[in-house]
Amino acid sequence: MSASLVETVDIEAPVAVAWSLWSDVTRWPAFLSHVRLVDRLDERRFAWQLQLPGADRNFVAELTEVVPEDRIAWHTVEGVHHAGVVTFHRLSDTSSRVTLQIEYDPQGFIEHLGALTNLDSVLANYDLGEFQKLAETAAAS
């Protein structure tokens, strides 16, 4: 059984600012609370270390699509099954909308519990809130 979530946040920052923050995967731990580390292996593949309640997870993800200032898509090639896409939408010269969509396979009780209680949605919402703060600070400077 796979689970999915979709979360959206509107940001008082241009698409270019949101894109530059998100397209640098090494910055993801700054706003993704469960991501401890992302290491670039090559142009398309990255090793992730996740820190989740009661479980740590490592996996390798590969970028499947990168369209500047529009979308970034990825899927895992080893470790946990997980795929996602983040899209960037221009609302105005100074604001944008970021949508995060994730499909995953909840393995084990902790992940099932998260999927059942919408913990994943809460976490994604929190992370997008952190991203929003980072992007708006960057846009203001």
Rank of each mutant, 00 (worst) to 15 (best):
M1Q: 05
M1K: 07
A3M: 01
L5N: 10
L5A: 08
V6L: 05
E7D: 13
T8G: 04
V9M: 08
E12T: 09
A13R: 11
A13D: 08
V17Y: 05
W19P: 14
W22I: 15
W22A: 15
S23I: 03
S23G: 03
D24K: 12
T26Q: 15
R27N: 14
P29T: 12
P29F: 08
A30C: 08
L32H: 06
L32E: 12
H34R: 15
L37D: 15
L37F: 12
R40F: 04
L41K: 06
E43V: 01
E43K: 09
R44I: 01
R44K: 07
F46D: 00
F46V: 04
A47W: 05
L50F: 08
L50R: 00
L52E: 03
L52T: 01
P53C: 02
A55K: 08
A55T: 10
R57W: 00
R57D: 01
N58P: 03
N58K: 12
N58V: 07
V60W: 00
V60F: 03
T64K: 01
P68I: 11
I72D: 06
A73Q: 08
A73N: 02
W74L: 07
T76P: 11
V77P: 10
V77G: 04
E78R: 13
G79V: 06
V80L: 10
V85Y: 06
V86K: 10
T87K: 02
T87M: 00
F88V: 12
H89M: 01
H89S: 11
R90W: 00
R90C: 07
S92P: 09
D93P: 06
D93C: 07
T94F: 00
T94S: 13
T94G: 10
R97K: 09
R97S: 14
Q101C: 01
E103T: 10
D105R: 10
P106S: 10
G108Y: 07
H112Y: 01
G114S: 11
A115P: 02
L116S: 13
D120R: 02
S121L: 12
V122S: 13
V122P: 01
Y126A: 13
D127C: 07
G129T: 11
E130G: 07
F131Y: 13
F131K: 03
Q132T: 09
K133L: 12
K133E: 15
E136I: 10
E136R: 08
T137M: 12
A138C: 07
A140Y: 00
S141L: 09
